[in-house]
Design a protein around this nucleic acid. Structure first.
Lengths: 207, 207
DNA sequence: ATTAAATAACTGACTGGTCAGTTATTTAAT
DNA sequence: ATTAAATAACTGACCAGTCAGTTATTTAAT
């Protein structure tokens, strides 16, 4: 086995272990996932896994804290750089579609739903750092568009939640109800989000 | 310990065990839930639990199959008995709000999300018997209202999914992100569904 | 440049505890 | 007295976490 001597190589290995852990926790759940299997997925021994994480709980905590937040930070900034409410909404939902398709975030969401009860502080962390920040971002977008007389909205916080609802729905659908080999139950993410956006603009736009 | 001698008493006991199991599976997940704790919750010994269910998997399967479907059957019929699309939509979302607040279905949904991967046939069962039936019901409602020139709709299947999205969202939110003692993160179910209904009617109604 | 010593990354067999499932025994009801 | 229900003690498979030993890599001396 090649050794990870430099800090960089260690970060790399740690990251490999975190992603192996995400896949095992996603497939089996916290309790049923085996430390040895996680190690095997990352091509190291169980002993090595314990050089990087003190125990199974620590590994789980690191997972939640290190995978979720980076993805969100990027998106927020880009969304706030747009000119109109319409542009912001369209850009946000397209970014989210991209995240759902191309990042491990949906698996992380499933893991939090499944095993969050054993780690209430992580549920709080995820709610604050990801979901409530999404809501705030949307509330900011709506408020700005209302002030610019572009949009009208009777209940901004609830509307923000209704905008996010299909995101959670599609994540749950893909992670749970779409078994790889059944074509007819696949959810067309782009069509769903396009129609959602269209509906929202009808509701929000002045006139 | 009192004995369950009649068929009725046995059904009663079986039901108590199923609900105890749902609570344990909901709190701990399939693997971490202990058969002895489930028995204790139902005020019987572990041995007695094994008189009613051959093993842990069987208990889990019985749970999914026996708790979900009865609730849905009732609602469908009542919804289809309404006159207009608007009435059907309002009645359906109010019924769902009632189910979310007063039945064990939301816990069951969480359990399926969490442990479904180990029981793919149950995920399929739930998708067909609950979710796809909900979609069909909504598609029927919309189609009827479109035919009656009450509503317009460009994509009926997708619209059905967008109607259900806040249901899944609110179930996940309540089961995962609302920890009992934090008032400020409580989701106002009635307000959410009322606004959702209002939005939908704006989109669907023919001028 | 070669090599021996030192270091630290890595390994996997082992242990202690846990828990699903079984069974011998007790208990309640008829 | 007989039977069926219930129990609690028991067994064995499983796995998180440990640690004594192994080996790749670096360092220092010639």
């Amino acid at each position: 086995m090649q050794r990870a001597r430099t800090e960089q190589a260690k970060d790399q290995r740690r990251n490999t272990l975190l992603h192996a852990a995400l896949n095992e926790f996603f497939d089996k759940g916290f309790t049923a996932a085996r430390m040895e299997d996680i190690a095997k997925l990352a091509h190291v021994s169980k002993g090595t896994l314990y050089l990087y994480f003190a125990n199974k709980q620590d590994l789980f905590r690191a997972l939640i804290e290190e995978i979720a937040v980076p993805t969100i930070n990027l998106t927020s900034q880009e969304v706030l750089a747009t000119k109109t409410g319409e542009q912001a909404l369209q850009f946000l939902l397209q970014s989210i579609a991209h995240i759902i398709r191309n990042t491990p975030l949906p698996k992380l969401v499933k893991v939090i739903i499944a095993d969050g009860k054993a780690f209430p502080e992580l549920v709080t962390y995820y709610r604050e750092q990801v979901l409530n920040r999404m809501f705030s971002l949307l509330e900011t977008i709506i408020t700005k568009a209302v002030e610019a007389k572009e949009w009208q909205c009777s209940d901004i916080p609830m509307t923000a939640r209704l905008i996010i609802a299909p995101v959670i729905f599609s994540v749950v659908w893909r992670m749970v109800f779409e078994s790889s080999n059944e074509q007819q139950n696949m959810l067309d993410l782009d069509a769903l989000f396009a129609l959602h956006t269209k509906h929202l603009l009808v509701i929000l736009k002045v006139n």
